[in-house]
Design a protein around this nucleic acid. Structure first.
Length: 273
DNA sequence: AGCTCATGGCGAG
DNA sequence: TCGCCCTGAGCTG
């Protein structure tokens, strides 16, 4: 269930259990046997996330690069580790814990130089404290592409996925089909700082919540949402339901092979500030 | 048992 | 823009 907040959380989860210690590394599935053999018995020195990319650093110019894609999952547990199932791409284990990686798009051993190349092709990440939304604005403000598509472009901004995209545009009353260059700098700055806050909360709670306090289920006397991603949201996967704020029916449409959700009432075409 | 769908991203055409 | 890769849950039979 991976948007950027998940990956940053996992970087911390790995560090908490394995950093500074030798690990045992295996690939029960077999697709990462060579890589696992090269880090087996090595010390996990550091972990890092940039957008949806996760890096496990073993020193000696060796990093494991993990990208979960749409289906990838990590499962942590305490020793003794049970026999791995046959889809486990990578198991790390020490005396106290194990971590099983399944279904990633990427799990590869890379060098420092290769890691740098990945950072270079990623935009600023709202969860990296030193990163700057102004860099993203330079691209957005010159683009005729829709803001909805730009927000999912990891070269422009790293870590935003389909849920945060839908929700942040809703929160700022912006029509998802508006061109990037038709946003104001003020609007973009507000979106960026909102993403910083929302995604930090996402890391803290390990789920995506975007509703403001006055629109929580408790505040509105409505039943809590039950959904895979687990959080309270305004528009994501709420097609045909009523907007919590204006009552308009939430709409959905395909955009660049992803499902887009928005409220036509709160996010009017050409309007809103 | 088989189908569909999902918070992602790549390369071919 | 489409097809493809990765996995598993939640349906439908």
């Amino acid at each position: 269930m991976p948007e950027g907040h998940t990956i940053h959380r996992l970087a911390a989860d790995y560090a908490e259990r394995f950093q500074g210690q030798q690990v045992r590394a295996t690939s029960p599935q077999g697709k990462f046997s060579d890589g696992a053999a090269l880090v087996d018995h090595q010390v996990l020195e550091t972990t890092e996330a940039h957008g949806k990319h996760l890096f496990l650093g073993f020193g000696m110019d060796r990093w494991i690069h993990i990208h979960l894609g749409l289906f990838g999952k990590l499962g942590f547990g305490t020793a003794p580790a049970p026999p791995p199932t046959d889809t486990v791409r990578l198991r790390l284990a020490n005396t106290g814990f194990y971590a099983d990686l399944r279904g990633p798009t990427t799990c590869a051993l890379i060098t420092d130089a290769e890691k740098h190349a990945i950072h270079d092709r990623l935009g600023p990440d709202p969860l990296r404290p030193e990163d700057d939304g102004g860099r993203a604005w330079q691209r957005i403000s010159r683009s005729r592409t829709t803001i909805a598509a730009l927000l999912l472009d990891q070269k422009i901004i790293a870590g935003v996925g389909n849920v945060y995209r839908a929700e942040v545009l809703f929160r700022h009353g912006i029509d998802p089909y508006r061109a990037g260059r038709d946003l104001t700098r003020t609007q973009w700055d507000a979106i960026w700082s909102d993403l910083v806050a929302l995604m930090r909360e996402g890391v803290r709670h390990n789920r995506i919540d975007t509703v403001r306090p006055e629109h929580t289920p408790e505040a509105m006397g409505r039943p809590p949402r039950v959904d895979d991603h687990g959080g309270e949201v305004y528009v994501y996967r709420r097609a045909l339901q009523d907007c919590h704020i204006c009552g308009t029916e939430i709409r959905t449409a395909g955009l660049a092979a992803r499902n887009l959700f928005w409220c036509p009432g709160c996010q009017p075409t050409g309007g809103a500030a």
